[in-house]
Simulated scan of single mutants.
Amino acid sequence: MTENTTEQTTPRARAGGRRVLIVHAHPDARSLTAALAGLAAEELRGAGHQVRTSDLYAMKWKATTDADDFPGWPRDDRLDVMGASHHAHDTGTLTADVREEQEKLRWADAVIIQFPLWWFSVPAILKGWLDRVFGADFAYGPGVRPYGGGELAGRRVLLSVTHGAGAPSVGPRGIHGPLSELLFPIQHGVLFFTGMSVLEPFTVPKAPELDEAGFRAVAAAYRARLAGLFTERPLPYRRLTEEDYTRELELRLGRERPGASGLGLHLA
């Protein structure tokens, strides 16, 4: 095996539970990120669901995309990553680690991505997971309809994010910018682009200051969100339709909600 994967099934899960993939990224197994990932796995299994996990640091996930990802690509040719990704998919030469993660995504009914916000983005190892796993002809390409279609359509996805800032500083008037906009490139640009139904993120502000009482409150709030993983209404991102967008992929005038601007234009 090239990964740290766990899968447990209960009789209730076999009878009617759903399948959930938890992907998490933190270098310390004693971290809040790891604790929340473990809590989610325990809670979901207790509710009768099947759970698999990808602990990227424990797996020693290769974060960089390079020629080693495409063993079938001619070494004397310039590395065209998109073209090489298409070629690897078509010829069955994807590396084993990428194939395994893609298969887990195909298996899942829902995905939870657990990570700390580092420099306004995901940890590099998680970005590398997105870069390498969400490859051509699997997550994008000529045969994959972006923003609402594709092989990953129908899967729910929840970002569970810890960060050090206070809630007001990532609010509508916060100096860091609204958290919804900080997460937009991941939620809309990667996950919704590839057809997934994106839920409102679960966020933990001031994570380094969390004490035991604070963790108990966070755990209770997280359990409540997990209970709605398959019933909660996803964010109403606009699908890519000719009714809403021009051929240049620009939102048509008059389609926006009253008062909407910026990234909010793409919420129906």
Rank of each mutant, 00 (worst) to 15 (best):
172 P>V: 03
235 L>H: 02
6 T>I: 12
55 D>E: 11
154 G>R: 02
33 T>F: 01
264 G>H: 13
262 G>W: 04
186 I>L: 15
108 A>N: 03
230 F>Q: 02
163 H>N: 11
262 G>P: 09
71 P>M: 09
148 G>T: 10
160 S>Q: 12
38 G>F: 08
45 R>H: 11
17 G>N: 04
98 V>A: 05
58 A>H: 09
241 T>C: 06
80 D>P: 15
180 S>L: 02
127 K>W: 00
101 E>A: 15
137 D>K: 11
172 P>W: 06
224 A>I: 03
257 R>D: 05
122 V>S: 09
10 T>S: 15
255 R>W: 00
19 R>G: 12
85 S>I: 07
160 S>R: 04
120 F>H: 08
166 G>L: 07
14 R>V: 15
174 G>C: 13
183 L>K: 07
64 T>C: 03
176 H>M: 11
247 R>E: 12
67 A>Q: 05
236 P>Q: 13
122 V>N: 10
152 L>D: 15
60 K>G: 11
51 V>Y: 09
214 G>C: 05
9 T>N: 13
240 L>M: 14
53 T>F: 00
105 L>W: 07
154 G>A: 07
118 W>Q: 15
164 G>V: 10
138 F>G: 04
202 F>Q: 09
235 L>S: 11
232 E>C: 05
246 T>M: 00
4 N>F: 15
211 D>I: 01
85 S>G: 04
170 V>N: 10
73 W>P: 13
161 V>K: 00
59 M>N: 09
179 L>G: 11
134 F>Y: 03
185 P>T: 06
64 T>V: 10
141 G>T: 02
239 R>G: 10
41 A>H: 11
173 R>C: 05
199 L>N: 07
39 L>I: 01
84 A>S: 04
2 T>L: 14
181 E>Q: 13
78 R>P: 09
66 D>L: 06
268 A>T: 14
164 G>P: 01
264 G>L: 02
238 R>Q: 13
114 Q>Y: 05
146 P>W: 05
190 V>G: 02
266 H>T: 08
250 E>Q: 15
66 D>S: 11
92 G>K: 05
74 P>T: 10
20 V>C: 04
227 A>E: 14
145 R>F: 00
213 A>E: 14
73 W>G: 10
107 W>E: 01
77 D>R: 15
66 D>Y: 12
138 F>M: 08
156 R>G: 14
39 L>Y: 09
82 M>A: 10
84 A>F: 07
141 G>E: 06
152 L>N: 14
171 G>C: 11
124 A>G: 14
76 D>P: 02
146 P>C: 08
260 A>I: 03
213 A>F: 01
199 L>V: 09
31 S>R: 06
15 A>Y: 05
71 P>E: 04
48 G>N: 08
44 L>F: 03
265 L>R: 15
221 A>C: 04
103 E>S: 15
